[in-house]
Structure formats: C-alpha cells, structure tokens
C-alpha cells in the first residue's frame, strides 16, 4: 500500500537515500531540510509517517516531534528518529516526545524499508 512519508534531515544525501529506498517500496516521499519546515509540511499534507533526523539547524528533530504531538490528528503519527549515536539520554528524550522507534545512522536501506512497512501495517 502506498503511503505518504515525510523525511526531515538537513543532509541532502541522507534525504536522497531515504527517498530512494521509500520510493522503491512504492511510497510518496516529502522532504524537509529542518524541523520547522518539517512541522509545516506535516500540518499541510496528509502524511502517514515521518522520519526525522535529530540534529538540524533552526529546529531540531526532537523539538519538531514535541510540536508535532500537539497538532490535531498527529498525536499517534508513527515517527522514526534517525540518530548517529543511540545514547541513553537521546532515546529517553525521543520516547518522551513520542518517537515510535529510532534508527541508527548509517542505516541499511532494506532495514529501513522493512521497519517502515511494519510500522505502517500496524498503524493501518
């Protein structure tokens, strides 16, 4: 089933990688280069899921996540957090802000695609 997925990362390379892997799985991908733009796109488009980097300029991923949970209809939106290091504090913060899961960079495309498919199927 095709879903609309928002990818928020300040690295165009990472966005490109994620886009390629999700498009190959038949999903529509929206991109944003920071949390603020991501949050706006999440409000404007009927997205089914978001994949969010932590460290970004303007608004970081965790702030975006916290704000997103306050948006109508996005309380239980599945969100994957992309991290370089899955430190205890970071994971705790992610959980606090309602991250569904976190994926450690560098990630494998097939692993990400599987995780996305699994979470989308559960949410459906």
């Amino acid at each position: 089933m095709s879903s609309m997925i928002l990818v928020v990362d300040d690295s165009a390379t990472i966005r490109h990688q994620v886009r390629a892997c999700l498009q190959a799985a038949g999903h529509t991908v929206l991109e944003a280069e920071n949390g603020a733009i991501g949050l706006q796109k999440a409000k404007d488009y009927p997205i089914d899921m978001a994949i969010v980097d932590v460290n970004m300029p303007v608004m970081n991923g965790l702030e975006m996540l916290a704000n997103l949970r306050g948006v109508d209809g996005k309380k239980s939106l599945p969100v994957f957090v992309l991290t370089t290091e899955s430190s205890k504090e970071l994971v705790a913060q992610g959980k606090k802000h309602g991250a569904t899961a976190w994926i450690v960079k560098p990630f494998k495309a097939d692993v990400l695609a599987k995780g996305v498919a699994h979470v989308l199927a559960r949410a459906a």
Partner: peptide, 18 residues
C-alpha cells in the same frame, strides 16, 4: 547503545531484524 537497542528489541515495535 546496546541498552537502547535492547529496549527497542524488547518493545517489538520494529521487526526483529530491523
């Protein structure tokens, strides 16, 4: 990193291989 991943594995949100 292990603790975080082990918790995530235990929660079963992602498929095991992920």
């Amino acid at each position: 990193a292990f603790e975080a991943a082990f918790d995530q594995l235990g929660m079963g949100i992602l498929p095991v291989e992920c």
